[in-house]
C-alpha cells in the first residue's frame, strides 16, 4: 500500500539532467533515531556544507529544516521506541539540495503531513500563545516540493532546499 500526499502539484521533478548531478557529492546518514543522534547528524551535515561555498542563509535553512523533520520523526514516529531506524540522504545539485528522509516508525496521523500554516501569535494573550505548531510551518516555509509517502517500510519525506552560493 502506498499513500501519497503533496503540497505542490508535482511529487518530485523526476531525474535531474545528468549535468546537474554529482553522484560523488551525495551525502547519506543512517542512524538510530534519538535526539542526540539527530544533533550529531546535523553537525556532520553542516560540516559538509561548510566547504561548499553556500551562502550562510542557505546553510542556516538546511540546519533548521532538517532539525525540524528529523526531530519530528524521533518525537512522533518513534514516540515509544528507542531503536527506530532513521536515514537522511542529500543529493547535492548546483542550486538545490534534494533531501530524502526515511524512517520505520508510526505513520503521520491521517497519513498526511500537518499543513504549513503559521500559528497565530500576534494579538494573542500570553496565556493563550501556542507552544507548538511552529515546526511544520518552518518546514513548509523553507523547503520546496515537500512530499510525504507512507509505505510498508515506513515514512518517506522528500523536499528540496535552495542553495544560493557565494
Amino acid at each position: 500500500m502506498t499513500v501519497s500526499q503533496s503540497t505542490h502539484n508535482s511529487p518530485g521533478l523526476g531525474p535531474l539532467p545528468a549535468v546537474a548531478r554529482d553522484r560523488a557529492a551525495d551525502l547519506h546518514f543512517a542512524f538510530v533515531g534519538n535526539l542526540q543522534q539527530v544533533r550529531v547528524t546535523l553537525d556532520a551535515i553542516d560540516a559538509e556544507m561548510a566547504g561548499r561555498n553556500l551562502c550562510p542563509d542557505a546553510r542556516d535553512n538546511i540546519q533548521l529544516v532538517l532539525a525540524e523533520v528529523l526531530n519530528n520523526v524521533v518525537e512522533h514516529a518513534f514516540r515509544d521506541r528507542a531503536d527506530g531506524a532513521l536515514s537522511v540522504t542529500i543529493e547535492i545539485g548546483r542550486d538545490v539540495l534534494h533531501c530524502v528522509v526515511l524512517d520505520d516508525g508510526a505513520p503521520m496521523p491521517g497519513l498526511e503531513m500537518p499543513n504549513g500554516e503559521r500559528p497565530e501569535v500576534v494579538g494573542i494573550a500570553v496565556e493563550d500563545l501556542p507552544e507548538g505548531g511552529f515546526g511544520w510551518f518552518l518546514i513548509h516555509r523553507l523547503s520546496e516540493a515537500l512530499h510525504y509517502e507512507r509505505s510498508e517500510a515506513g515514512n518517506r519525506f522528500t523536499f528540496r532546499l535552495p542553495v544560493a552560493r557565494n
Binding site: 526531530n71 500563545l129 501556542p130 511552529f134 515546526g135
Partner: peptide, 16 residues
C-alpha cells in the same frame, strides 16, 4: 546559536 521549534516552544512556555 541555534533555536528550533521545540526551543521556541520552550521559551514561550517559560513566558507563560
Amino acid at each position: 546559536e541555534f533555536l528550533d521549534s521545540s526551543g521556541l516552544g520552550a521559551v514561550v512556555a517559560a513566558m507563560k
